[in-house]
Amino acid sequence: MERKSNVGIFAGLLTYVMWGFIPLFFKLLSDVLPLEILAQRIIWAAVFMVLAVIFTKKWQSFSVIIKAIFRSPKQFLLMLLVALLISTNWFVFIWAINHNHILQTSLGYYINPIVSIVLGVIFLKERLSRAQVVAVILAFAGVMVMTLSLGVFPSLSLILAFSFGFYGLLKKKMDIPAIEGLTIETLFVSPFALLLWGYYIFSDQSFVTNNATVVSWLLVICSGLVTAVPLLLFAFTARKVTLSMLGFMQYIAPTISLLLGVFIYNEAFTRTHAISFALIWLGLLIYSVATIRKHREK
Rank of each mutant, 00 (worst) to 15 (best):
W90M: 12
F91R: 10
V92R: 09
V92D: 12
V92H: 12
V92K: 10
F93K: 15
F93E: 12
F93T: 14
I94N: 08
W95K: 14
A96Q: 04
A96T: 09
I97P: 11
H99K: 11
N100P: 06
N100Y: 08
H101E: 11
H101C: 09
L103V: 11
L103P: 07
L103E: 06
T105C: 15
S106A: 15
S106E: 08
L107R: 03
L107C: 08
G108A: 12
Y109F: 14
Y109Q: 14
Y109L: 13
Y110Q: 07
Y110G: 05
I111Y: 00
I111M: 07
I111T: 06
N112R: 02
N112F: 00
N112W: 00
N112D: 05
P113G: 07
I114P: 03
I114H: 00
S116C: 14
I117W: 00
V118G: 04
L119K: 01
L119P: 01
L119E: 03
L119D: 00
I122G: 01
I122A: 01
F123W: 09
F123Y: 12
L124R: 11
L124A: 15
K125Y: 09
K125Q: 13
E126C: 06
E126S: 09
R127G: 12
L128Y: 00
L128R: 02
L128W: 06
L128H: 04
L128P: 00
S129Q: 11
S129A: 14
R130L: 13
